[in-house]
């Protein structure tokens, strides 16, 4: 059972990584976008495996649904063809080197560090009896009420800002 789980994890991780690679390498932005949706789905699967079904749901709805649709709309609106990959080869090489260096460093850091054992009260049993959505809701409307309200203002500002920016004449 455990091996099966691990096998499943590696499978999904592989899909996520391949899709991610497609995002950064496809010449056609639409293909990049579709690959990104694929990555989002893989992450949603991980969220379910991590006993966070609500997060998985909004991952699919907000990211894969709303945001990606918005991006694809804009792409169609601007009607950009396939792009030429960066003019300066040494810049591309430099980017790869820097990112690889960063990845190696982070992984070293993860290996070096020791994550503490379980400290909080939320175990998978609690989530199953109470329900994930209710737990999120409780946290959101008690401890994080102020940030929640501020987030609503942020969204309002973003809406207004988007309208103002995208309008032809202000």
């Amino acid at each position: 059972m455990e091996y099966l789980q691990l096998f499943f994890f590696y499978l999904v991780a592989l899909v996520a990584i391949v899709a991610g690679f497609c995002v950064i390498s496809c010449k056609n932005p639409i293909n990049s976008a579709i690959s990104l949706v694929m990555t989002f789905f893989c992450l949603a699967i991980f969220y379910v495996m991590l006993h966070a079904p609500f997060m998985a749901a909004i991952q699919i709805m907000v990211y894969a649904g709303a945001i990606m649709v918005l991006i694809i709309f804009v792409m169609m609106l601007l009607n950009q063809g396939a792009e030429v990959i960066a003019r300066y080869r040494h810049a591309v090489i430099g980017a790869f080197v820097a990112a690889a260096l960063m990845m190696v460093q982070i992984i070293v850091l993860i290996k070096q560090g020791a994550v503490s054992a379980t400290v909080g009260p939320i175990s998978s049993d609690v989530i199953e009896t109470v329900g994930h959505t209710e737990l999120i809701g409780q946290a959101l409307f008690t401890d994080f009420l102020l940030p929640f309200e501020i987030a609503s203002i942020l969204l309002l500002v973003a809406i207004v800002g988007a309208v103002v920016l995208a309008k032809r004449e202000v």
């Binding site: 980017a95 820097a98 260096l101 960063m102 460093q105 982070i106 070096q112």
Partner: peptide
Amino acid sequence: AMSMVAGVVAIIAIYV
């Protein structure tokens, strides 16, 4: 952006 990444790499290097 490249300089930013270089900076991040440098900062992580301090931790590493």
